[in-house]
Design a protein around this nucleic acid. Structure first.
Length: 456
DNA sequence: TTAGGGTTAG
């Protein structure tokens, strides 16, 4: 029993003919020419892996000729869901039907196999790529090596890397980058340098990423002098350091207490034709904040504006964070107000930090305003922020305000901790000793009922 | 295809 007629379930092939020529393309299975979304592709997306395989065969059974993209989409889906026996089955169909394949398909499957720790299978699939009517390039080798290394399988990656891969199959810079990364993960700096030298000997030109991998390692280890030497090497090699190189170097210098030098690097980068971005300013800002030099951190904001670099939400958050930590939440509040003028939308982190900071300095009215704005923007405050606000208001003897806050919290299906409820109830009891404030008590009753219905 | 940088919380 089917809900749709046969023609709806298995639209006839003629419906998918090329709109201009109205005849089937000769090479319909060619990977690059199958960008039109066929009904099968739309259909298969809605199915679970088992039904997808079933449907694939059913459509075929009713005369539908699957294009390469049908196979590929199905295979990606199956691999993503780790249905590797079905992957094997569909791959076999591709092979026996001699359908030309795109190397990207194998890259994707190899990555999923490695994620599932099926390293032997990943390696075998890589070896079998030529049997699939596909010429492998270093791209699939690199994907295999990188998947192995990211799964902590460096020895296997090295074994594969050292295997001969045919006369026309030459490793490229990415291959070496991946292997260098692998060595540095285990802290083998000398091994990495040796591989770098091998790369040069084999006339494989290192790229910016090669240097960035080395610099990133050195900066994290605090080996600033060596990092700067590698930096000089980049220039010597005729390669241009990129924005990431500068950012890593700046961060390394800041960590090493060399703020002034980090700033110099930022000016140098502009001189060398690489415009500092918001991240570079944020690195300086964060460092100044850490050193409790808030005023200078604020000046960076002004400097950014002068240099036509629009501060983003993370920049503002960096400042707001340090202001709040220093008990200067009023300044943080001003910054937040300034963000709106600059058309920069606060995010959940902005609101959370500002609300907490304002509670900390007992500016509950403002904190309450921040919470409301947060809700209006579709963000959720943390439970401890609500706790702090309600408890703070209670401590100031403002039980009615605290109850109103609680009302809104409950309306939004949020909860506070049990101890906050206690504080609120005790606070209301204190208010009403011998002179019960009926309005407050009624509100609390309502809230308790609402709270129990949320919990149930 | 490879790295990678600045915020909150967890």
């Amino acid at each position: 029993m089917h809900l749709f007629s046969k023609s709806q379930r298995f639209p006839l092939q003629k419906k998918f003919r090329h709109p201009k020529t109205n005849h089937r393309r000769k090479n319909a299975d060619e990977p690059k020419k199958t960008r039109l979304k066929t009904p099968f592709l739309t259909h298969v997306k809605t199915l679970d892996p088992k039904s997808a395989v079933h449907s694939f065969h059913e459509w075929e059974h009713h005369g539908y000729t699957h294009s390469y993209s049908s196979y590929a989409t199905l295979l990606y889906k199956l691999a993503r869901e780790h249905q590797f026996s079905s992957v094997h089955h569909i791959l076999n169909l591709l092979k026996t039907r001699n359908i030309p394949c795109n190397e990207c398909l194998f890259v994707g499957i190899i990555q999923h196999l490695a994620k599932a720790h099926l390293f032997e299978e990943a390696s075998q699939l890589f070896d079998q790529i030529p049997s699939f009517n596909c010429n492998p390039t270093p791209k699939s080798l690199n994907a295999l090596l990188n998947s192995f290394i990211d799964s902590d399988q460096f020895p296997d990656a090295e074994r594969i890397f050292r295997q001969p891969h045919g006369p026309n199959f030459r490793p490229n810079a990415v291959t070496y980058n991946v292997m260098i990364k692998g060595l540095l993960i285990s802290g083998d700096w000398f091994g990495a340098r040796k591989l770098f030298d091998e790369m040069i000997d084999r006339k494989i030109k290192p790229n910016a990423i090669t240097f960035n991998i080395l610099i990133s390692y050195l900066c994290k280890k605090g080996e600033l002098e060596q990092a700067e030497m590698v930096f000089e090497e980049i220039v010597k090699n005729g390669e241009a350091p990129n924005a990431t190189t500068y950012a890593m170097l700046m961060e390394g210098l800041c960590i090493d207490g060399k703020h002034h030098e980090a700033r110099k690097v930022m000016y140098d980068m502009e001189y060398r034709g690489c415009k500092p971005g918001v991240v570079h300013y944020a690195i300086l800002m964060k460092d100044l904040g850490k050193r409790r030099r808030l005023g200078e951190a604020m000046d960076i904001l002004e400097e950014m504006r002068k240099r036509h670099c629009k501060p983003d939400v993370v920049c503002y958050n960096t400042l707001i964070n340090f202001c709040c930590k220093e008990g200067k939440a009023k300044e943080a509040y001003e910054i937040m107000a300034g963000m709106k003028l600059e058309r920069c939308k606060p995010n959940a982190a902005t609101y959370r930090m500002a609300a907490d900071g304002l509670c900390m300095i007992r500016e509950f009215e403002k904190a309450w305003g921040v919470l409301r704005a947060m809700w209006r923007d579709g963000h959720t405050p943390l439970v401890h922020t609500c706790d702090n606000l309600v408890c703070g208001l209670c401590e100031e003897g403002r039980a009615m305000d605290a109850s109103l806050v609680m009302e809104e919290i409950s309306e939004r299906k949020m909860q506070v901790t049990a101890s906050t409820w206690n504080v609120l109830l005790v606070s209301c009891g204190g208010v009403s000793l011998g002179n019960v404030d009926e309005e407050v008590v009624a509100l609390i009753d309502e809230l308790v009922q609402c709270e129990s219905s949320v919990k149930s």
